[in-house]
Design a protein around this nucleic acid. Structure first.
Length: 649
RNA sequence: GCUGCUGUAGCUCAGUGGUAGAGCACUUCCUUGGUAAGGAAGAGGUCACGGGUUCAAAUCCCGUCAGCAGCUCCA
């Protein structure tokens, strides 16, 4: 299902590119594996990357060059206003640019306006940008003279043999230069472009939390105002759809100071959505040959010593509870529990593969600063499952999971890409042979399904290769939720075996997989994906029934009763109150359909159907509406179409 | 965890040293209205929490909790 079929038609086609950091100008990027990767850690980082939806028109230079030059312009303005400023790095990034400064006083938004003004003045007065190539010693001498110690450190990061260049602009006492690899635009004035400074934030020098924290100013630049405005509008749209904002507006969830940070309370509306998703999920899993398991939330600490979590993941775990002189822990993952079930008795090759699923709630002590709405929390439910199989069965099992991922993601209208993450260069466990075999199985599975795999060389976990999925939402943003991971480690640690046909004891492969990732993160993302306009099958209230006058309540009641009997979630707004208020209420709640009924409808057995977000309505026989609604629900349609019928104004 | 900022009614916010305000929402009454704000009245707040300064603190200071923007982390 293409995202363009979403009701409000928001679709942006640009794929994101990860913020590209200039080698000489920015801290070295961490390898992109960052998605969390182990059964010791199913992926659950925010991992939402904002793609730029603004079609980038051609300029005389690449947009990134313009933005980098704008960063220089900003830095020179900062120096003019704060002569004692020390400069860090100032690269262009996906949506704009930033520059890091060490300043004696924290900057405020007011200061940003001041800096913008200064930037305009400098650009007008002396717009030329000039390049100078120097020797390393000259560069060092110059930076020393300028007293720029971060830049001196930056100089040492430039590999031997590379040109060392400075870029200058400004005249006389305003001449400003920066150690920089370039390239830059030639002029800050003749070229037409627009820029805006957006916000200030803290950032560690060279991205290391042991280093000093600098002040980072973020800004953006475009070749024309239309593009800048379009970008700012897109940011507004993102803000409007923020799941935390919609969470309040639509009465979906809350968090509480009394309960602590990172714990989500699902209100009835969101509980309804979750239950529908869970029912869908269980249905798919039952059909897919999965059996439900349930495992305790608290276990003796020694269980996590065996699994290795205590050692490798201990910092993320909640502190032990001492009971009868033994330490107990709240589980941070479900896999040890499933391994215990497997190990409970001897297993034969005849029973493999075993597929066990659990919507397992886990608790992880996330750092206080990273908690974010429903997207990064301390207590959450993973849609977890483990498959225990032989190496020969692996390809088919993976293919089965890929099929299920496809079904689920398409049902919600997500496009996706899959990545094959192979063996890391160092510190892995397992024989070469099993790695090769497993990796090949992942490839085979994808080939079976014509699923293109992009390669993430060396991006696998230490205990096995994996396939990760990236999805794109209705705003063009990318998320990472689904993951399929082969694990050679836990079977080893728990000494899991099966008896092979020849009577020997063999080690099964354990496949960890999550499709939604966690209910919290998935549903949080879903709120933003749909912007609160949920499709019929998950909408908390599917139909609002509104009588025009109080005397039409009895007919409205029969409509509501019939819908309820058909299993729909109906809000019968029968109390004596203004029809207009009821319509407004239902619109605000994003109820997909309103049925408005007065004398004419009661006489004809019809309903005036009004779709959310519109003012138009059509009059159709109630049964026609009912059939359409059933169709939308049962097919899990993403559309909330207008009803064909006599239109009435 | 780090840097900066914020916390006042269910929601959005105003109030910078002198005993707490608005709009929306809510309740009641009037209005019986054909498709997104009819009218009137009312109720609702330990100004996050704890300590301090002061004759006096929502307001100034310190701490805690929670949130926001980032950074870092997410073997």
């Amino acid at each position: 299902m293409s995202a363009s079929r979403l009701e409000d038609g928001l679709l942006h086609s640009c794929l994101n590119t990860k913020a590209r950091r200039r080698r000489s100008g920015a801290p070295a990027t961490r390898r992109s594996s960052g998605w969390g990767s182990s059964p010791l850690h199913l992926p659950r980082n925010n991992n939402m990357i904002q793609a730029d939806p603004v079609p980038q028109v051609e300029g005389p230079f690449p947009l990134s060059t313009l933005r980098h030059s704008t960063a220089h312009l900003m830095a020179s303005a900062v120096q003019k206003l704060y002569p004692e400023a020390q400069f860090g790095f100032g690269p262009s990034i996906e949506h704009g640019f930033y520059y890091d400064f060490d300043l004696p006083e924290p900057l405020t938004d007011k200061d940003l306006r001041k800096i913008e003004k200064e930037m305009r003045r400098i650009a007008n007065r002396s717009p030329k940008i000039e390049k100078e190539t120097v020797s390393r010693d000259e560069a060092r001498a110059k930076l020393k003279e300028w007293g720029q110690h971060f830049k001196l450190e930056g100089l040492d990061l430039i590999p031997e043999g590379e040109d060392i260049t400075f870029y200058y602009h400004g005249d006389g006492d305003e001449r400003w230069g920066d150690l920089c690899e370039g390239p830059h635009v030639d002029s800050l004035k003749e070229l037409k472009f627009v820029f805006k400074l957006q916000h200030v934030a803290g950032a560690y020098w060279r991205g290391d939390e042991k280093n000093k924290m600098l002040q980072r100013i973020y800004g953006t630049a475009f070749w024309n105002k239309e593009q800048l405005d379009a970008h700012l509008e897109w940011l507004e749209e993102v803000k409007k759809r923020d799941h935390r904002k919609l969470g309040t507006e639509l009465d979906l969830f809350s968090t509480h100071e009394q309960a602590g940070s990172g714990f989500v309370f699902w209100h009835p509306n969101l509980g309804t959505i979750r239950r529908e998703i869970e029912a869908f999920w269980w249905d798919l899993h039952t059909r897919g040959g999965y059996k439900p398991v349930y495992t305790p939330h608290v276990s003796r600490e020694s269980l996590f010593a065996v699994s290795g979590h205590l050692e490798n993941y201990g910092e993320m775990m909640y502190a032990p509870m001492d009971l009868d002189a033994l330490p107990y822990r709240v589980k941070p993952m479900n896999c040890p529990g499933h391994a215990l079930i497997y190990a409970d008795r001897g297993r034969s090759y005849r029973e493999l593969p075993l597929r066990w699923a659990e919507l397992g709630t886990v608790y992880r002590y996330e750092k206080s600063g990273v908690v974010h709405g429903m997207l990064r929390v301390r207590g959450f439910t993973q849609d977890d499952a483990h498959i225990f199989c032989t190496p020969e069965q692996l390809a088919d099992e993976i293919a089965g999971v890929c099929r299920m991922v496809d079904t689920v993601l398409r049902t919600f209208g997500f496009e996706y890409k899959a990545y094959l993450a192979t063996r890391p260069a160092e510190k892995t466990i397992g024989e070469d042979e099993i790695w090769e075999k497993a990796t090949q199985s992942l490839r085979d599975a994808a080939a079976q399904l014509d699923l293109p795999l992009e390669l993430d060389e060396g991006g696998g976990a230490f205990y096995g290769p994996k396939i990760d999925y990236k999805i794109k939402d209705a705003l063009g943003r990318e998320w990472q939720n689904s993951t399929i991971q082969c694990d050679f480690n836990l079977p080893e640690r728990f000494d899991l075996n099966y008896t092979a046909p020849d009577g020997s004891q063999q080690r099964p492969i354990m496949v960890h997989r999550a499709i939604l990732g966690s209910l919290e993160r998935f549903v949080g993302g879903l709120i933003e994906h749909f912007g609160g306009k949920f499709p019929v099958w998950i909408a908390p209230t599917q139909v609002a029934v509104i009588p025009i006058r109080e005397e039409h309540a009895p007919y409205s009641r029969t409509l509501a009763d019939r819908l309820t009997a058909e299993g729909f979630r109906v809000e019968a707004m029968l109390e004596a109150a203004h029809m207009n208020k009821k319509i407004k209420h239902a619109q605000k709640e994003q109820t997909p359909y309103m049925l408005i009924a007065g004398e004419r409808e009661a006489a004809d057995g019809t309903v005036a159907v009004r779709r959310r977000g519109t003012r138009e309505q059509s009059v159709v026989p109630f049964d026609t509406f009912l059939e359409m609604l059933k169709g939308l629900r049962d097919s899990k349609s993403l559309e909330v179409p207008d009803v064909e019928g006599a239109s009435v104004s």
